[in-house]
Amino acid sequence: MIKVTHLTKRFVQQVAVDDLSFTIEPGEVVGFLGPNGAGKSTTMKMLTGFLQPCEGNVSICGFDIGKQTLQAQRLIGYLPEGAPCYGDMSVGDFLSFIGQVRGYRGKELKQRVARAIALVELERVVEQNIDTLSKGFKRRVGLAQAVMHDPKVLILDEPTDGLDPNQKHQVRKLIKSLAVDRIVIISTHILEEVSALCTRAMVISHGRLLIDETPYALQSRSRYHQAVTILAEQPLDRQLLQALPGVMALEDNPLDGSITLLAKPGEVIFPAVNQLIHAQGWQVRELEVERGRLDEVFRSLTRGDAA
């Protein structure tokens, strides 16, 4: 369990993290969301013991990160922003170094390194110097180093930044498979990642925790929550659509000529729309219900915060 109380970090010009308090239980995958400079990375740096907070406490599974730093750090696997690794080492040597620091020796060390390499599919580049690797491979080396010791707490700062879609998918799969009985914290700008991965979304802006809820609840804040989009062969009767119970407004999408019906908060309009289409005998090519647009929620929550 991670317990954060009144965490505050002030730098010379600004308050980076402002009185943050939360608790995370094992099994949760938490996504830190927020604009650049919102304090996500600074929070992670304090959770891992790299930075000392100005005020407040962090407790990792009962260990105070400020006082029992080493015990806490043994439980944490951390991928810092940009996945820094020792570039002059080969992938194998680097992971072996990390394994030794994590206390593995001999046969167990070999097994741990081999397993970490297999988990993120680094077999092809084991002998290569890290400096010569592509961005995606470097990121995976950073991930391998973070998961090697089966940490109870996994903290990943932008784990999929700079990866191609296939690699992103793979990393997400890896994080999901690791998440059982563990605490995973990721930070990201990629909103789809939050709904794909996380059980809990924390929106941080100006160092303050704005929202702390499930990704679904976050999506339902969108004005597009439960919105229905219709792409039809012929012009639709707008008045009939507008008159349906629960429909708040119509929106035209000039790109493909489809119409989006926005639902009033808390209303479900899809069945009514569906019935109307059948009753009118409209030829509909596409019909889509939305859960909500996270980027829109994100923008409206953090508007004017862009750093």
């Binding site: 740096k45 891992t48 013991g49 790299f50 080493l70 750090q73 043994r74 944490i76 951390y78 810092p80 922003e81 940009g82 820094p84 690794c85 020792y86 570039g87 990390i98 620091v101 994590r102 180093q145």
Partner: peptide, 14 residues
């Protein structure tokens, strides 16, 4: 410069 200090300081090393 390379940022590895963040890695080094968050490993269980005094």
């Amino acid at each position: 410069k390379s940022g590895t200090i963040e890695l080094l300081m968050t490993l269980p090393i005094t």
